Amino acid sequence: MSTNALETRQLVKRFGGITATDNVSFTLEQGSRHALIGPNGAGKTTFINLLTGVLNPTSGCVLLNGEDISGLGIHGRVRRGLVRTFQINQLFPTLTVLETLALAVSERDGFGRNPWRPAGSRHGIMKQASALADTFLLTDVLRNIASSLSYGQQRLLEIAVAFASRPKVLLLDEPAAGVPEHDRATILDVLASLPRDVSVVLIEHDMDLVFSFADMITVLVSGSVLTRGSADQVSSDPRVKAVYLGEAEHE
Rank of each mutant, 00 (worst) to 15 (best):
M1L: 13
S2V: 11
T3C: 09
A5H: 00
L6I: 13
E7F: 02
T8F: 02
R9G: 02
L11N: 01
V12S: 04
R14M: 11
F15C: 03
G17E: 11
I18L: 11
T21H: 02
T21A: 14
V24N: 00
E29Q: 11
Q30G: 10
Q30L: 12
R33F: 14
H34F: 04
L36K: 00
P39N: 12
A42M: 10
A42S: 08
T45I: 03
T46S: 14
T46K: 03
N49Y: 14
L50C: 06
L51N: 03
L51R: 02
L51W: 09
T52A: 05
L55K: 12
L55S: 13
N56S: 13
N56V: 15
P57Q: 05
T58M: 05
G60F: 04
L63A: 01
L64K: 00
N65G: 10
N65Q: 15
G66P: 00
E67A: 02
E67P: 01
I69P: 00
G73A: 09
G76H: 03
V78C: 11
R79L: 10
R79E: 15
V83D: 06
R84Q: 04
R84V: 02
I88S: 14
N89G: 13
Q90P: 09
L91M: 07
F92I: 09
P93S: 05
L95R: 05
E99F: 08
T100P: 12
T100L: 06
L103G: 03
V105I: 06
S106F: 08
E107L: 07
E107M: 12
R108Y: 15
R108N: 06
R108L: 11
D109E: 07
G110Y: 09
N114H: 05
P118N: 11
A119S: 14
A119F: 08
G120D: 06
G120N: 05
R122M: 06
H123F: 15
G124Q: 08
I125R: 04
I125Y: 11
A129Y: 01
D134F: 15
L137F: 14
L142A: 03
R143M: 09
N144R: 11
I145Q: 15
S147D: 15
S148P: 01
Q153R: 07
I159D: 02
L170G: 04
L170A: 10
L172S: 04
D173H: 07
E174N: 02
P175E: 02
A176D: 01
G178P: 08
G178D: 10
P180H: 13
D183E: 15
A185F: 12
L188M: 12
L188H: 11
D189V: 09
D189W: 14
P195Q: 03
D197V: 06
S199P: 07
L202R: 02
I203F: 01
H205M: 07
H205N: 00
V210G: 06
V210A: 09
S212R: 15
F213I: 03
F213C: 14
D215R: 08
M216L: 15
T218P: 04
L220Q: 13
L220I: 12
V221F: 05
G223W: 04
S224D: 15
V225D: 12
R228S: 13
S230K: 00
S230F: 13
A231Q: 03
Q233R: 15
V234Y: 00
R239Y: 10
R239A: 14
A242I: 09
L245A: 10
L245E: 07
L245P: 07
G246M: 06
E247Q: 08
A248K: 09
E249H: 14
